[in-house]
Design a protein around this nucleic acid. Structure first.
Lengths: 215, 215
DNA sequence: TCGTTTCCTGACCGTATGGTCAAGGTGAAG
DNA sequence: CTTCACCTTGACCATACGGTCAGGAAACGA
């Protein structure tokens, strides 16, 4: 913050900025390439081209392809965890689950690549993030199940199985990112418009909140 | 049908059987390998090993890796289409959608590999089955939307958006296959038992049928 | 038995990939 | 200006992969 807003695109100037900017560009390119080609199909050369750097430079910042991949997966996981705070500070399912659906649908629209990388990783048996599943994700899940169970006990929603509600929420919201291409094809080849996204969010919230007897 | 039930595992005997048996073994191995490693990560060598054949033999039956892959994707698509008949011969949403959920959940349990291959293919932009999406899948979708709309018009369910209902159905049912590893990890590392699968199906049906105001 | 079609497979090839390295460039501190 | 840590990169390497092929084995029909 030295007085004037830096564009910070290229010509980074300071040393630290060089590192930050290059890592950012690499991670952004990697996210896209890993999402579109999978880990096995992605090549360092393609990521390098997309980031506008020579391939050897990638290995200066990220030792191996796996290191780079791991960082990309961690990134989307953290974004999802942040969004999950919607759950906690809510008086009941209408606000809590409603906000959670909103947040996850927004992420599906703004970070479709990350969502696909995560899906791909889990589908292949989570070779690099198994520990996250067993620790952070498990803890988070148990916590949310407890919250939902409390809502049920308080009569704020029907006695559905909280675990399967979470799976339905994850599946449905992420579907709009992971299967975005299929959805686009069924939408005459055009991406969903702002209006269609609002309609999607409203539909999902409506079905889910009805489905759990919250409205 | 020459009198005795053939085991038909190995030692196929007749010419036609040799071809049939080898293609079956290759397709089965390919489905598993493509699901676990993705198209790019899968190797013909690994598929060959898993099928118990030398690699060169694979290329005798399937010219290229892509040919083999295409066959695997088509297979799961046909299985899903068959299951979709549940939709048609049903008087209302409770029977129709209920049966559809049952069918797709069963497939997620019996054909998890195929589901993953399909998901991976769509996530990567459907390079080899784009035409299916634009023809068969689109037609099928429009047909089912019409059926659902009729149920709505007949007052058999709430006026939800049929398209987003279909997406929710696809997402949720396939989630149990595509994210099966995550679900298993959250289930203390153990696969869902028969009882847990029944519970899952019941939960999904309950939430969905409530959600659309059919019960 | 013979001829023909189908099936089998070890050895091989061109290519593309992840990763390395050494030499050179560049910004900032003293 | 000098120094030094950090950054950049073309050239290179070993490996692994998809695919080919020629020669042989096995299954059938006559």
């Amino acid at each position: 913050m030295s007085g004037d807003a830096q564009i910070s695109r290229l010509k980074p100037g300071r040393r630290t900025d060089i590192r930050r900017e290059n890592e950012r560009a690499i991670l952004e390119a990697a996210e896209k390439v890993f999402a579109e080609a999978g880990f096995g199909g992605a090549t360092m050369q393609l990521i390098a081209d997309m980031a506008g750097l020579p391939k050897a430079n990638l290995h200066y910042y990220f030792a191996t392809k796996e290191d780079l991949y791991r960082r990309v997966v961690q990134q989307i996981f953290e974004i999802w965890l942040d969004a999950a705070s919607s759950f906690d500070d809510a008086p009941g399912p209408v606000e809590g689950i409603g906000a959670y659906i909103d947040a996850k649908m927004d992420i599906s629209r703004t970070h479709p690549h990350g969502s696909k990388v995560w899906a791909s990783e889990v589908m292949h048996g989570a070779p690099v993030i198994q520990d996250y599943l067993e620790t952070t994700l498990r803890d988070w899940t148990e916590g949310r199940i407890a919250v939902i169970q409390r809502w049920i006990d308080d009569g704020k929603m029907a006695p559905i199985n909280p675990r399967h509600l979470l799976y339905l929420l994850w599946a449905t919201t992420q579907h709009y990112a992971d299967f975005g291409h299929q959805i686009q094809t069924l939408n005459d080849g055009k991406p969903l418009s702002d209006k269609q996204w609002r309609e999607a969010k409203a539909s999902v919230k409506d079905m889910v909140l009805r489905g759990i007897g919250a409205i």
